Computed example of a mutant assay.
Amino acid sequence: MSTPASALGRHLLAEFTGCEAAALADLARVTAAMLAAAEASGATIVTHSFHHFSPYGVSGAVIIAESHLAIHTWPEHRFAAVDFFSCGDVDMDRGLAVLKAALGAEAEVRLELERGPLRTLNP
């Protein structure tokens, strides 16, 4: 979905609940799922970085030419917080659907924001 003409970017905050705990604790699996989500959205991947916390949990981000896709996981709560921001024409819905399936999430709640509203200099 494209960014509205009235904003510089679209920002989706997603909360995945009822996820597979093992998936959320697996650095390689979270990394692969995030890269697959970015690819499925049509975003241009620039780089990525992920970190496994002790005793569990993964945080990381995929930097895309259009902005970023980030995640923080809590395997002990079967919960993942996802942040997808884009100033380009990417299909965030498709990307998040791929990520939701990869993490085995039972439910998802989203908050959508328009970022950086465009304004005229002379009102």
Rank of each mutant, 00 (worst) to 15 (best):
A5L: 15
S59E: 01
E20I: 07
F79Y: 11
L24M: 10
A7F: 15
R110W: 04
M92G: 09
V98F: 04
S86L: 05
A37I: 07
A25I: 08
L111I: 09
P55V: 05
A7I: 11
S41Y: 03
M92I: 15
K100W: 03
L118W: 14
K100L: 09
G57W: 03
E15P: 00
D83C: 02
A14V: 12
E15V: 13
G9A: 15
E112P: 03
G88E: 08
A21V: 06
F79T: 06
E20Q: 11
D83A: 01
L118V: 11
S59R: 01
E66F: 08
A37T: 07
R10F: 06
I71G: 01
I64M: 14
T31Q: 15
I63P: 00
A14T: 13
D83H: 04
M1V: 10
R119F: 10
P117M: 13
D26K: 05
K100Q: 14
A43L: 07
I45S: 04
C87Q: 06
R10H: 13
L27E: 11
V30G: 09
L27M: 11
H52E: 11
L121R: 15
L121H: 13
G95V: 07
T73V: 02
H77E: 09
S67Q: 01
A33G: 02
Y56K: 09
C87E: 02
A23G: 05
A14F: 09
R78H: 04
I63S: 04
A28T: 08
A14M: 08
A33H: 02
C19N: 08
S59C: 10
S67T: 00
F84C: 04
D91K: 09
T17D: 13
A22S: 15
E66S: 02
F16Y: 12
L69C: 03
L13D: 09
D91S: 05
M1Q: 12
E15S: 14
A5V: 15
M34D: 07
A28C: 00
A61P: 00
I71M: 01
S54N: 06
G60A: 03
E108D: 06
L121E: 15
A37G: 14
R110N: 14
R29Q: 13
A33D: 00
A37C: 10
A22G: 06
L121N: 09
S86F: 04
E108S: 07
A70N: 00
T31K: 14
G104R: 05
L12G: 07
L113E: 10
T3P: 10
R115S: 07
F85P: 03
S49G: 08
E20M: 02
